Computed example of a mutant assay.
Amino acid sequence: MNKIRSREVEVVVVGAGQAGLSSAYHLRRARYEPDRDFVVLDHSPRPGGAWQFRWPSLTYGRVHGMHALPGRELTGADDSMPSAEVIGGYFAEYEEAFDLRVHRPVEVSAVREGPHGRLWAETSEGVWAPRALINATGTWDRPFWPRYPGQEHFRGRQLHTADYPGPQEFAGQRVVVVGGGTSGVQHLMEIAEVAAATTWVTRRPPLFREGPFDEARSREAVARVEERVRRGLPPQSVVSVTGLPMTAAMERARSAGVLERLPMFDRITPNGVTWADGHRVDADVIVWATGFRPAIDHLAPLRLREPGGGIRVEGTRAVRDSRVHLVGYGPSASTIGANRAGREAVREIRSLFAEPGAGPVGGPKDRHVDDPSQHAVAAAV
Rank of each mutant, 00 (worst) to 15 (best):
V377E: 15
P115N: 10
D42W: 00
I134M: 06
L27C: 02
H279E: 05
A92C: 06
R343H: 01
Y329M: 13
D214L: 09
T139Y: 10
R305I: 07
I4G: 06
L299M: 11
F154G: 12
L262V: 12
E226A: 14
H368A: 15
T316M: 13
S22C: 03
R312P: 07
V13P: 12
N135S: 04
D297A: 15
L233I: 15
V369F: 02
F98S: 01
P146Q: 11
A295S: 15
R147M: 11
P143D: 09
L233R: 13
Y164M: 06
F213V: 08
V327K: 00
A221R: 01
T316I: 13
A354D: 11
F208W: 09
R155F: 07
P263K: 09
Y60A: 00
I296T: 15
G291P: 13
A333M: 03
F213I: 12
A221S: 11
Y94K: 06
R254K: 13
N339R: 04
R54E: 00
R217T: 10
S23M: 06
E107G: 09
A379S: 15
P56S: 08
Q186L: 03
R219I: 13
P165M: 04
D37R: 12
A283P: 04
G179H: 07
P234H: 05
E152A: 13
R72S: 12
Y25A: 03
R312E: 03
P307Y: 08
R230E: 13
G357Y: 01
G272N: 12
S322A: 01
F38P: 13
G88A: 09
T198Y: 00
Y25E: 05
W288R: 10
W128N: 07
V185N: 10
D277T: 10
S218W: 05
E93F: 07
A289C: 13
E344P: 02
V319R: 15
M1H: 08
A216E: 06
N135R: 03
V241K: 07
G243K: 04
R312S: 07
Y25H: 14
A338P: 10
R46M: 12
P115Y: 13
R217K: 10
R101A: 08
N271L: 07
W120D: 15
Y32W: 14
N271D: 14
R155I: 09
H187W: 06
R230M: 09
T123D: 00
F98D: 00
T59A: 03
G328M: 05
W275G: 10
V108F: 00
I4S: 12
V258G: 11
A197V: 12
I286H: 11
E169S: 14
T198M: 05
A379Q: 15
R224C: 03
G243Y: 02
G20N: 08
S255V: 14
A378P: 05
P234V: 09
L352Y: 03
R28P: 05
R157F: 01
S240P: 05
